[in-house]
Computed example of a mutant assay.
Amino acid sequence: MTEDRERRLIDAFLTATGTLVGDYDVVEMLQTLIDDIQELFDVDAVGIMLANQQQELEVVVSTSEASALLGVLQLEAGEGPCVESYETGRTVWVADLEDMRRRWARFAEESERAGFASVHSVPLRSREAVLGSMNLFRIEPGRLNEQDAVAARALTDVATISILQQRDADQAARTQQQLQQALDSRVAIEQAKGFLAHTHRVDLDTAFAMLRAHARSHGLLLQDVARAVTERRLDLAQPESADTRR
């Protein structure tokens, strides 16, 4: 590991562990986490699913529209590596399209169409509690190298602990409410993406990049920016060039 990459990995851990003290926004924390993972590791897209109050998975954050759609596809079909990782509480490797086709034909077809050849799904798990799954998509076939796999697992564990850290003996309902708020926030973000895509004639990835850039530059929560856009309290100017990977 290069010195620069090691420093950035340490920064990612510091950011994730910073949520262990005080209040924080779950969606913002998870989006930052997957942005860091995509930048640091040998992956091309990342997404996270969380279980709602009915224990049904929903896509909460993603680094691209393609990875988000693959998540939705699995939820509609009720199967796929991300769903299996959540249901079993175990890491699921799918190293190539051939293996995918043997296990989930439709998922393999859509993954190939999206340009992904392999996926690595990690449960958001702490002891017996499984909150969802983090899913790392790769254009190239093959598994993550061991170093990246261990680091990704560690970051996922920190995120899980961050979500659960406020739970005590009588706080299970509060934790579920917090997760539901995260899912509700995602709805607001998706609405804002659609609004910007329509009004600015850009794709959804570019629309998300506009929201994210404004939130970061002004120190605002992503969900607050999204609601301001859809309520027409904020007019975002289209950047000359948007990084659609973030």
Rank of each mutant, 00 (worst) to 15 (best):
M134S: 06
L50Y: 04
A197G: 02
E84N: 13
S64W: 00
E87Y: 00
V26M: 11
G80F: 05
L33Q: 07
F208H: 08
A197K: 07
Y86G: 04
M1I: 15
E146F: 09
A68M: 08
A114F: 07
Q53D: 13
D25G: 05
Y86C: 10
S64T: 15
E6P: 03
W93E: 14
R174Q: 14
E39P: 02
V21P: 00
L155N: 00
Q54H: 12
A169R: 14
P81S: 14
Q180R: 10
A169T: 12
H218I: 05
A45P: 04
A108T: 12
M1S: 14
G142N: 06
D99L: 13
V61Y: 02
L155G: 04
Q191C: 06
M100K: 02
Q176Y: 00
R113S: 11
R113D: 14
R125Q: 13
P123F: 01
E65W: 04
R103E: 12
T175G: 07
V72E: 15
A95Q: 06
G89Q: 05
V27F: 09
L234N: 09
R245C: 09
M100N: 06
A16G: 03
V21R: 10
Q166W: 09
D243C: 01
D35W: 10
C82T: 15
P81E: 06
M100F: 09
S185P: 01
N145M: 02
L211K: 03
D4K: 14
F195G: 08
V60H: 11
S217N: 13
T244D: 05
I139T: 13
D224T: 14
E56N: 15
F195M: 05
Q176D: 05
D36T: 07
D44C: 09
L234V: 04
Q171N: 05
A129H: 03
S126M: 03
Q147K: 13
R201H: 04
I37Q: 08
E98H: 08
E79I: 07
A213I: 02
L236R: 01
S241K: 03
S118K: 01
D184T: 13
S162F: 05
T244L: 01
T88F: 04
Q166D: 12
D35Q: 12
A228R: 12
R113N: 14
